[in-house]
Design a protein around this nucleic acid. Structure first.
Lengths: 345, 345
DNA sequence: CTGAAAGCGCTTACAG
DNA sequence: CTGAAAGCGCTTACAG
């Protein structure tokens, strides 16, 4: 059986609370006792029981992280960045993949509450109002990442998607595009809905017409969320419209699928259709043609989010409850200026 | 404050142990009491305290998963597959990224023990013997995934890397290659060392000469484990040897970097150099030229691993403590037969 | 079927 | 500086 504090106390010839004090530094203990206790710990290979500690102190050293799918690179990066920062604090992390399902999200929120996590980081805007309520009711602070800035998330760090959409439209406009298609993976998280909305607004700012006929949103397959495949499938719609000058895809991986299909049909990118994505996936600069994309500061977002959460856990009031970060456009060959503006032809 | 069992008991007019029995089904309780208790639970929004439960029952509902880096797609896939299966069992998952560091691994193992996890899944062969000992000492079952079959991991599910290396060499040989370079990311996990070793053996089987002069192993940068970048850098060495017919890269992402650099130098793939990778990364079929690679059954590996762990947790003896899975070669254009065998020129 | 009692391994006032 | 005591929220024999 694993040794307990009692065993350590016995071997060191002190009381069990004294061992607790030595380990946690919660009382001034004489050097000689500290030494005896540490020796006993060493000898027994004693490892404190974090579970019992949490039960008594009513505080765990765990936070929950909820993302749609760690299999998606964007979220994998986010999770990694969060984990690396939490580790420094000695905090463990429960990983929860909700697969864009309201029910799974709610189940996970319940479970996190059961486990008395210190706080939660959510990689999107919670789908269920009930999830939010439960966390609030149980006094568990939550910070949302990568949401749309207009939502009701109390604490959040996000990328300015209005700016992001403007960057995209502005760039494509300058590159000569007048009919711009928006292609999105399923809009299972609110930031994707926002991106679409801001895209429409941006078109207007540039005096371009928005037309649903050349905006295509993929259906959520749930069982197999493969962005490339979804992009490949959606591209069939693009092929039906020969007036489309450019495509703004909701993510790079989705764009990869689109590019693949268009190339199969002999379409010249960018001369016939310009394409850009979003996320600056590592592969975006390797695909042919290299993909124009918009970089989002995932690490910074995660870093600020964790800092905010840690402050909230300590009961501090935050100066900023909502932090907005700027994206950056990375221009590559997939949106090189058309040789001649179609409008002039 | 969050309601406890006591509060529920009070409201329902029963004792606290009775509430426990209703919730856990650990005793036959009359329908009327069950109803009253459930109503009280509903009314108070009571959520059981898993922490206290673990403290008392000395059993958590948590397993730990240790991988080098969830930012690497291979591990992200693995983690996702594991999580999806555990969720069905109502088990939570601590995610630990060890970044190929012995110290971080050991720290995490200690922390997992502190938290009294039911078991651990390790996505490689533990680096520290001490990690293994600690887990054993504390009676925590561990299943290793993606290891080399000749190691001392007691329970493991792995891909036959001898077969994998043979497939690669055999294919390249058939495609006309006689001088084959092996290029590897840092061999921070034992399966990569094994892959290299089996590659050498396979060369011998085909009567080919192994020569370290055209085998290149990247250094571990630790702070920024970017496979593509490492592949790009290592490719400088390939350029120095004009006798190399083909390159077998330890992973697709690593191969992407190599391909990028070779193409920059005007090298025709596969006519001048054939390249193949490993993992069947989703991009491997999009890159130009599409990359020949070897698919590994990650989902199956994770699935069997989790099943094994769950059995061990239940105290069952396993029929198979070591499961070996077969890889599959996927042939694409990056290793098309050379027009003429170099040997004939 | 239900409850009183003991206890999981620990923390935290409090007394000395 | 150190220990006796109470208690965290729960489970688990045991008695009735």
């Amino acid at each position: 059986m694993q040794p307990t504090m009692k065993d350590v106390a016995k071997l060191a010839g002190v009381s069990q609370p004294t061992v607790s004090h030595v380990i946690n530094g919660t009382a001034p203990i004489s050097e000689s006792v500290v030494k005896r206790v540490n020796e006993a710990i060493e000898q027994l290979g004693y490892i404190p029981n974090a579970t019992a500690k949490s039960a008594k102190s009513r505080k765990s050293q765990i936070i929950g992280i909820i993302v749609p799918d760690v299999g998606i690179r964007f979220y994998a990066e986010m999770v990694k960045a969060i984990e690396m920062q939490l580790r420094k604090q000695g905090i463990m992390m429960y990983l929860c993949n909700t697969l864009y399902s309201n029910q799974l999200e709610l189940d996970y929120v319940r479970t996190l509450i059961q486990h008395h996590v210190l706080g939660v980081i959510v990689g999107y805007s919670l789908l269920e109002e009930k999830s939010r309520q439960l966390l609030k009711k149980h006094g568990i602070p939550a910070v949302s990442l990568d949401v749309d800035g207009t939502t009701h998330d109390e604490y959040r760090v996000f990328v300015d998607n209005q700016m992001l959409a403007r960057m995209a439209v502005s760039h494509l406009y300058d590159a000569g595009a007048r009919v711009i298609s928006y292609c999105s993976e399923p809009m299972g998280v609110n930031v994707l809905q926002a991106r679409y909305k801001y895209f429409r607004n941006a078109l207007q700012e540039y005096g371009l017409e928005f037309d649903e006929r050349w905006c295509f949103i993929a259906q959520n397959p749930y069982d197999d969320y493969n962005k490339m495949k979804m992009g490949y499938n959606i591209a069939a719609n693009i092929l039906l419209h020969d007036n489309i000058d450019a495509v703004f895809a909701s993510s790079d991986e989705f764009a990869f699928g689109i590019i693949t299909r268009l190339k199969e049909h002999g379409i010249d990118i960018p001369q016939q259709i310009q394409i850009m994505g979003c996320d600056n996936d590592p592969f975006s600069k390797l695909i042919s043609p290299p993909l124009t994309t918009i970089w989002q500061p995932i690490n910074k977002m995660a870093g600020i989010g964790v800092s905010m959460l840690l402050s909230l856990i300590e009961g501090k009031k935050l100066e900023e409850t909502s932090v907005c970060l700027e994206p950056n456009i990375i221009i590559r060959e997939s949106t090189l200026k058309l040789k001649a503006l179609k409008a002039d032809v």
